[in-house]
Structure formats: structure tokens, C-alpha cells
């Protein structure tokens, strides 16, 4: 099974970024906006049509598409709020 990505984190959960998987422009942009290895990301909400998602990172709000969120490998910060493994996440 794939490692957990930001795409399947439930709304309301906070996770820690492990790695950015992609390449090129999108990866650079994601990192420039502050989603770097070790940063904490809080998933705030999904848009009314289910995509994109809104996250809080480094104290501000950022929106990104689920396709791009899939490039961000994450791990749970606290065991209490731990998220289900890939596939059962928020839709």
C-alpha cells in the first residue's frame, strides 16, 4: 500500500510533511509556498464541489487541488487523531 498523502487526510486533521514526491514546477511551487519536509499542515476544508482543498500551513491559508495534494507524503502528528489509511479518507 502507498504511503499516506495529503489527499486522503480528513478535514480537521493536522499532519506532518514527510516528502514531496513530484517534480518540476508544481513541486517547486508547493515547496515555495511553505509545504516543506517537516512542516505541519492542517486540513481546513474541501471546496463545495469536493475539490480543491484548503489547508493551513505556516500560519496562512493555502488551497491546492487533490491531484497535487497526492504528491505530498505525510504522517500523523498525534495518534489520537490518526487518519485512516489511503483510500478511506475524506471524499
Amino acid at each position: 500500500m502507498d504511503a499516506k498523502t495529503l489527499k486522503n487526510v480528513k478535514v480537521g486533521d493536522t499532519v506532518k510533511v514527510v516528502r514531496i514526491i513530484g517534480v518540476g514546477a508544481i513541486k517547486r511551487r508547493i515547496m515555495d509556498m511553505g509545504i516543506t519536509k517537516g512542516s505541519e499542515v492542517f486540513v481546513r476544508k474541501t471546496a463545495p464541489f469536493g475539490d480543491p482543498i484548503e489547508v493551513t500551513v505556516r500560519g496562512y491559508e493555502l488551497s491546492l487541488r487533490k491531484d497535487d495534494a497526492e504528491m505530498i507524503a505525510v504522517e500523523s502528528v498525534n495518534s489520537v487523531n490518526s487518519v485512516n489509511s489511503a483510500g478511506q479518507g475524506e471524499r
Partner: peptide, 10 residues
């Protein structure tokens, strides 16, 4: 190349 939609919500 598709433009990334990674946008700040000010």
C-alpha cells in the same frame, strides 16, 4: 506544462 493551482487564500 500545466500551471499549478497552488493558491493563497488571503
Amino acid at each position: 506544462d500545466p500551471a499549478p493551482f497552488v493558491m493563497e487564500l488571503p
